[in-house]
């Protein structure tokens, strides 16, 4: 029994309160199906960068929770970031990794290096995260989420999720990136700044 990324995102969204959310990869696509959160930003196109952006936000706003919705291949791209986070000890950072063991899920479905072998929970623990755990189904996530969010941090949660079938092929040979894909991250950074009342800095 596993869970769908969209279902996990819906559940996490109901528990976020006033948290800032940094999302990427499949979780970003899932959050795009939910109502807009002005305190959310997508790390795109910047595979690997979500956790470190989340670390910066967590240090800037220590009184507010920061959720990072990462991917497994994305985490692997900047694995040393686990050390950087643990070293900085942000008590408000919750790093959720949606692990489907697949790259380009829903497009080409290529195996991720280390898929189903590399133990990310153990790595986060070994790097010095205050809490590190794996959750493999929605019911368990629902049951454990309150204790995760009230527990020690930085906190690492691997969510084992399903993936969609590949859509690229002879009948659908290509997908074009829109201009919005490249302006989105900056637009959402500036939206977060506006909502947090940081814009005076721009004028200084």
């Amino acid at each position: 029994m596993t869970m769908k990324t969209l279902d996990a995102c819906k559940l996490l969204d109901t528990h976020r309160g006033d948290a800032i959310v940094v999302c990427t990869m499949g979780a970003m696509n899932a959050l795009d199906k939910l109502p807009v959160n002005p305190l959310a930003m997508a790390c795109v196109p910047l595979m690997g960068g979500a956790a470190s952006i989340g670390l910066g936000l967590a240090l800037a706003w220590p009184e507010r929770k920061v959720f990072v919705f990462d991917g497994d291949a994305s985490l692997l791209m900047e694995l040393g970031g686990l050390v950087s986070i643990a070293h900085a000890k942000p008590k408000n950072l919750f790093h959720f990794v949606f692990n489907n063991s697949i790259q380009f899920a829903g497009l080409g479905n290529l195996d991720t290096p280390g898929a189903r072998r590399a133990d990310m929970v153990a790595m986060a623990s070994a790097c010095g995260f205050d809490s590190s755990q794996r959750i493999t189904n929605l019911e368990d996530l629902e049951a454990r989420l309150p204790s995760v969010l009230n527990g020690p941090a930085p906190s690492f949660v691997e969510l084992v999720v399903e993936y969609d079938n590949p859509s690229l092929g002879i009948e659908n040979p290509a997908v074009e990136m829109t201009d919005e894909r490249f302006s989105r991250m900056g637009d959402e950074i500036r939206r977060i700044r506006r909502h947090l009342g940081c814009d005076a800095e721009i004028r200084s």
Binding site: I20, V22, M41, C43, L46, G48, G49, S52, I53, G54, L55, G56, L57, A58, L59, A60, W61, E78, G80, G81, V83, S84, H87, A88, I189, I192, R193, L196, G197, C198, E201
Partner: peptide
């Protein structure tokens, strides 16, 4: 903020900026 790679240093700076800090 000590980082293990320079791409992280840039990204943490981006997050701090998003949170209103000067870096």
């Amino acid at each position: 903020v000590h980082c293990t790679t320079e791409d992280q240093a840039i990204e943490v700076a981006g997050g701090l900026y998003a949170g209103g800090k000067k870096v």
